[in-house]
Simulated assay, not measured.
Amino acid sequence: MSGGVDSAVAAARAAEAGHDVTGIHLALSRNPASYRSGARGCCTIEDSNDARRAADVIGIPFYVWDLSERFHEDVVEDFMDEYAAGRTPNPCLRCNEKIKFAAVLDRALALGFDAVATGHYAQLRPGADGLIEMHRAVDHGKDQSYVLGVLDQHQLAHSLFPLGDTTKDVVRQEAAARGLLVADKPDSHDICFVADGDNAGWLREKLGDRAPNHGGAIVDDATGEELGRHTGTYGFTIGQRKGLRIGTPAADGKPRFVLDIEPVTGTVTVGPHERLAVSRLSAIKPRWCGTVPRRLEGTVQLRAHGGEHRAVVATGDGAVEIELLDPAYGIAPGQAAVIYDGSRVVGSATIASTSTGTS
């Protein structure tokens, strides 16, 4: 129970369905005093209190589990390492993979529970092959199957998503009818461990001497001309337009975008938007929800709130090759490519490189 409306209603529905439910809130900060106030994240002290009050209204036991050390190692450190290496990670996927459906699930099963239920918007269905399938939520605007694409069959078999067949408006109405004070609480957003939402500032403070460079050149893709200097590659991501602080305008007057990040030399390359187009992706560290496909004509989603791209996916030797039938723009190494067959989530992999060719 994060302290938001979704997990509160999910807990209430699970209890009403006859399950023996216990509410768990995760303490993920090693220094609780550093938690921000307000409803920007999902694990503040205020959120903990909101979750406890919701559990009281539902009439279920409630506990706080301290997973701060595991969270720091598996999510926060991974986030810093990836940015220091010039990649763009998604910490919410890593949290689901390593914390909510690994550390929490392992402890829950050891204590005799059968499953972990959350307020994520996704649907689980039995497949024709006897495996558990994960599908997009009914409310496509709130669908969270992208950040759940890291879950394997064992994890899916011990998961419940009570809200997958419901729209967000209905969830809020239901929360109000149940007397849950979080009915009108704003949705969480931003990265929960970045206090003010300033990712670049947070990385600059935390990385310090760990960064492979303390600055470098911002160069033009076409001419190689140095356009400016920066204080660390971790302040940039592929496709970024704002905050480049380049004094010289492009010859054609059009905006420039980050095209490439080289963390070893500290070089950030910028150029026109059309140079961001990619048609092939090579990905590593695949996670499959069920049977591993050899070749699949389906779709991929490349951002948590992005659209689907028609694609042909091929696998082999632990690698995933993705041919995009329509180009995508501003795709960065480190992002997750989540693979779909219709509404069914097939699995996910971490993008290692991109290219524009088809050969």
Rank of each mutant, 00 (worst) to 15 (best):
R245N: 05
V147R: 01
A200R: 00
Y329K: 13
V138H: 11
Y146Q: 11
D6G: 07
T265C: 11
A39V: 04
G253F: 01
A183T: 05
A85H: 03
P186K: 07
G4N: 00
M80A: 00
L124Y: 06
D20Q: 12
D169I: 10
Y234R: 09
Q240T: 11
V345L: 05
A337Y: 03
M134P: 03
Q240C: 12
G86F: 06
G23P: 00
A137N: 09
E73Q: 07
T356V: 12
G179C: 08
M134K: 03
F113M: 00
M134T: 05
G318S: 13
C42W: 10
D165L: 13
C289M: 11
V64P: 07
T299V: 10
Y146R: 10
G197Y: 13
D220K: 02
A10K: 01
D165C: 15
A102M: 05
N96G: 02
V171W: 05
V150F: 04
V268R: 06
A314R: 15
S343Q: 15
V338F: 09
K206M: 13
S2M: 02
E225R: 02
P272T: 01
G334D: 06
I246F: 01
G232P: 03
G119H: 06
D139F: 05
E321F: 12
C43H: 06
Y329H: 15
A337I: 06
R280K: 12
S48E: 14
R178S: 09
H309E: 14
E16V: 06
A85N: 12
D78M: 11
T356E: 08
R294K: 13
R294E: 14
P333T: 04
